[in-house]
């Protein structure tokens, strides 16, 4: 495995979380990682105001806030008419790590999921992936966001693959990091 790119010296990151205690810890960790600028927003509305006026390279958003949840913010951003904002990498910080929650996050256009409780190793890995291993951005009638497929697998069936049944991946092939059981 190649080493992570952790050159965050010119990166600007926004943390959206109403849990100020954890948000401040996350900010300190990002500053330790030499992120150029870290800002915090404690609500959905405050986040919207900030992102409309300041560019960021990445957004950390909590899934459960008092007003609206993180997935609503992701959907709002993915449907933005501002191309740069629309494509911004988003990391969902959440304690909801059951399969359905992960699928909901993926369908909302979340780039990476940071499972709480957090660890610095996990934060470094997720932010590096979000910033430097970006997947193609998909715009379709029903989905805006990073390609939901994380792995390109060979296909040796016929050209009309939608009419063929495709075997589901084995459990150990699942890409989702589902170490923490929830829900």
């Amino acid at each position: 495995m190649s080493p992570l790119n952790t050159d965050f010296k010119f990166k600007k990151i926004l943390i959206v979380d109403d849990d100020l205690y954890l948000a401040k810890i996350l900010r300190s960790i990002l500053e330790t990682f030499e992120v150029a600028q870290v800002r915090m927003a404690k609500s959905y509305d405050e986040a919207i105001t900030i992102i409309n006026n300041h560019p960021f390279d990445c957004i950390f958003v909590d899934n459960m806030m008092s007003d609206k949840n993180g997935l609503m913010l992701a959907k709002h951003i993915r449907q933005s008419k501002d191309i740069n904002l629309q494509k911004i990498p988003m990391i969902l910080c959440t304690s909801f790590t059951g399969l359905q929650s992960i699928l909901d996050a993926r369908d909302a256009g979340i780039t990476e999921i940071l499972a709480k409780p957090i660890s610095p190793e996990q934060i470094m890995e997720k932010i590096s992936n979000a910033l430097f291993k970006q997947r193609p951005f998909i715009v379709s009638d029903s989905y805006y966001g990073p390609d939901r497929r994380r792995r390109i697998r060979d296909y040796d069936g016929s050209a009309d693959r939608r009419n063929n049944s495709i075997p589901l991946p084995e459990k150990n092939e699942m890409v989702i990091d589902d170490k923490k059981e929830d829900e």
């Binding site: 495995m1 080493p3 992570l4 330790t32 190793e121 470094m124």
Partner: peptide, 25 residues
């Protein structure tokens, strides 16, 4: 990702970050 997969410089940053958490603990 295991600790061995981080570079020395990254491990130094991780040590500092883990100190933030242990201080808060």
């Amino acid at each position: 990702m295991t600790k061995d997969q981080f570079t020395l410089e990254q491990r130094e940053l991780l040590l500092q970050a883990n100190k933030i958490i242990s201080d808060a603990s």
